[in-house]
Design a protein around this nucleic acid. Structure first.
Length: 551
DNA sequence: GATTTCACGTA
DNA sequence: CGTACGTGAAATCC
């Protein structure tokens, strides 16, 4: 590779005829320098050179994985778009494993157990020597794009949406790296006040902590039959305790205890105890010390997709923080949140991916369960349950009037779900609308002596995955669109929650940002479901505190 | 000490 | 009214 650290990267890209959207491979070396490669050659440069080149030329930077973005973001470099080989590999091949050697081997049809080690130096596989990685990136993208289109065609999907999805799934990895670096604004006084109310003040030491715990336990145990004591953290002992109070249950899950709550003060106290104990153990002071930075930002690791249907994941409780704690998620001084969530996303996605014109017509309503209910001649709650049961696979009350009418009113949509269910039951892989492979083979698959339960379980999974997965693809395309358009306003996405975006924005730009978030959804919907047959809607509010947005 | 099970929070 | 995820503590396995 040419050593040309001093050369102007933008000029070099121009000289190599790189236009906006053209690929340029980049690898961050262990020493922090950056290797850039385009079809015409390669260049050693610095992270600082990437930013002006990104603004000036706007290539699509090809990277191996989110690691590159994490390294660059740490140095203040945020790229506009990318092609992430690992993200696209997960889309193409399903599952989670996506290291360069594995992705490369899959593209070349090399079986997983025959992947050469980096040291073996097979000439037909790319070398893992650092200076070879950047040139290899361009080749990987070309192979992946071709493979995506082939796979989409084979699955009867639109080829254009497959490549567009690969791009947004890639750029979401940039967003994920930024979410991890930026964190979620949280007001320290507010969260400590909430915790004090729920689990008490921060313990002064181990003895104090034990006392607080014992006091919390006592508020349950004082309702126990006299003489009976139990460790509330042991489910077996809780069951015995409940039995002593005349309550016989097979397990002690909350939903099972719900019916005894009104009659038994013991059960009521236990359920309250569980809530407090959850916050004390998982979302308590240890959590704050671990995840809340000195800058009052709550940070966790983010992935652009999980290994199943492709939703984003986050650690540090960012995706499962109890709703009461949202009260402490407060915008920084001079800032506001724009909170936006997609309304009835799953039935709308079903209408779009199945191409059911009747269901698409229902989606023109703000509340699409109203026209569906009218169509089925049932009330709204019944229509909603029937729709959700069709998408997620009911286990009880198979059939029923509403379900039968749903089949005759929306045969295309129901047929789409049934196809997914049947394929999954048979152990055949599925592809989402955007082209993500949902693996059904490989595991316990089409074994001979397989239980009926295992088959119906797979059917439910497949039925759900094509909807949940496609919804995730639409959501992420929306998110990267917002990320790009909001940046000039100084607005940043600080949380992605499956169908909800939280954007942190300077106060004087909040109204603009809120309008932009809605515009981005319209733009995304046009690109995602061309012809605009299905209406997608978002509830968008501007708030200082996350809890102030209606939930 | 590592893995599995239970439980529960979010969508 | 099902799926998915991350988490912590107890139970269980080795």
């Amino acid at each position: 590779m040419t050593e040309n650290v001093g050369v102007d990267l933008g000029g070099w890209l121009r000289a190599n005829q790189v236009s906006p959207g053209d690929l340029a491979g980049i690898v961050v070396e262990p020493d922090g320098s950056v290797a850039v490669a385009v079809p015409g050659g390669a260049l050693a440069t610095t992270p600082g050179q990437l930013l002006p080149a990104d603004r000036e030329i706007r290539p699509r930077w090809a990277v191996w994985s989110q690691e590159t973005a994490r390294a660059l973001v740490a140095g203040g470099v945020r790229l506009t778009t990318c092609w992430d080989v690992a993200a696209v590999h997960r889309l193409l091949s399903g599952g989670w494993r996506a290291d360069p050697a594995f992705a490369w081997a899959c593209l070349h049809g090399v079986p997983a157990d025959q992947i050469p080690s980096p040291a073996s130096g097979q000439p037909d596989l790319f070398s893992f020597a650092d200076e070879q990685q950047a040139p290899a990136l361009g080749a990987a993208e070309a192979l992946q794009a071709a493979e995506l289109q082939r796979a989409a065609l084979a699955a009867g999907n639109d080829r254009g949406i497959a490549v567009a999805t690969a791009r947004s799934e890639s750029t979401v990895e940039l967003l994920a790296a930024e979410l991890a670096a930026d964190g979620l604004p949280m007001n320290r006084a507010a969260i400590e006040g909430l915790l004090a109310d729920i689990v008490g003040l921060r313990p002064r030491g181990p003895g104090d902590a034990a006392e607080i715990r014992a006091a919390r336990d006592e508020r349950v145990l004082r309702h126990a039959p006299s003489g009976v004591i139990a460790d509330l953290r042991s489910n077996g002992q809780v069951r015995t305790l409940l039995a002593a109070a005349g309550i016989d249950v097979p397990d002690t899950r909350a939903w099972r205890l719900e019916e005894f709550k009104d009659k038994s003060p013991l059960v009521a106290a236990l359920l309250e105890w569980r809530k407090a104990e959850r916050i004390a153990t998982t979302y308590g002071y240890a959590w704050l010390d671990e995840a809340l930075g000195p800058d009052d930002r709550l940070r966790g690791a983010w992935t652009g997709c999980d290994g199943a249907a492709g939703r984003m994941t986050a650690s540090s409780g960012l995706h499962n923080m109890p709703a009461v704690l949202r009260r402490a998620v407060i915008a920084e001084p001079g800032h506001l949140f724009v909170r936006a969530d997609l309304g009835q996303i799953e039935p709308r996605v079903l209408a779009a991916v199945s191409g059911d014109a009747a269901l698409a017509a229902a989606a023109t309503a703000d509340d699409m369960y109203l026209p569906v209910a009218a169509q089925l001649s049932v009330d709204r709650p019944t229509a909603k349950v029937a729709m959700i049961a069709a998408m997620y696979g009911q286990t009880t009350g198979h059939g029923g009037n509403a379900a039968r009418r749903m089949r005759s009113a929306y045969p295309i949509a129901m047929g789409y779900l049934d196809d997914a269910d049947r394929s999954a039951q048979a152990g055949q892989d599925l592809r989402t609308y955007g082209g993500r492979l949902i693996r059904m083979s490989g595991g316990a698959g089409a074994a001979e002596a397989e239980s009926a339960g295992a088959r119906t379980g797979r059917g439910r999974y497949g039925r759900n995955a094509v909807i949940q997965g496609a919804a995730a693809e639409l959501f992420k395309m929306w998110a990267v669109t917002v990320r790009a358009r909001a940046a000039p306003l100084g607005a940043r996405i600080v949380l992605c929650l499956h169908d909800e975006l939280l954007v942190h924005v300077p106060e004087d730009r909040a109204a603009q940002a809120a309008e932009l978030v809605g515009d981005c959804l319209a733009e995304t919907a046009r690109r995602w479901a061309p012809g605009g047959p299905v209406r997608f809607i978002a509830d968008i509010t501007t708030v200082r505190c996350w809890a102030d947005a209606k939930g």
